[in-house]
């Protein structure tokens, strides 16, 4: 007989069409179908969603905060990627 505990799942809910799925929390379920049903019952009982994704937590690969320096800091000074970097004459109102 199995005595394993129900694994943990991460739940993503799309609140309405046109918006992306957003992580809203996690829960336990024995398989993907149950995870979907549980997510429906736990995370959309106030009409919060029109679509649900479930992913078993162990399948998520996360970046390590220790590497944040090399991963994210180099992007900080690339100001030329933003429109405010470029000068425009005042006469051009919208561009």
């Amino acid at each position: 007989m199995s005595t394993k505990n129900w694994p943990l799942w991460e739940i993503f809910v799309r609140s309405k069409n046109g918006l992306e799925h957003r992580h809203c929390g996690s829960l336990h379920a024995s398989d993907a179908e149950m995870a979907l049903e549980n997510a429906r019952d736990v995370y959309t009982r106030r009409n919060e969603g029109v679509s649900i994704w479930v992913v078993e937590s162990k399948h998520i690969t996360a970046s390590n905060p220790e590497n944040n320096g090399e991963l994210f800091e180099p992007a900080q000074d690339k100001v030329y990627r933003h429109p405010t970097f470029y000068d425009l004459p005042d006469e051009v109102k919208h561009m």
């Binding site: 007989m1 199995s2 005595t3 394993k4 505990n5 129900w6 024995s30 398989d31 149950m34």
Partner: peptide, 13 residues
Amino acid sequence: VRDAAMAHAEKKE
């Protein structure tokens, strides 16, 4: 009940 759900999930897989 919890054991049964887990066992079923494993068999299904």
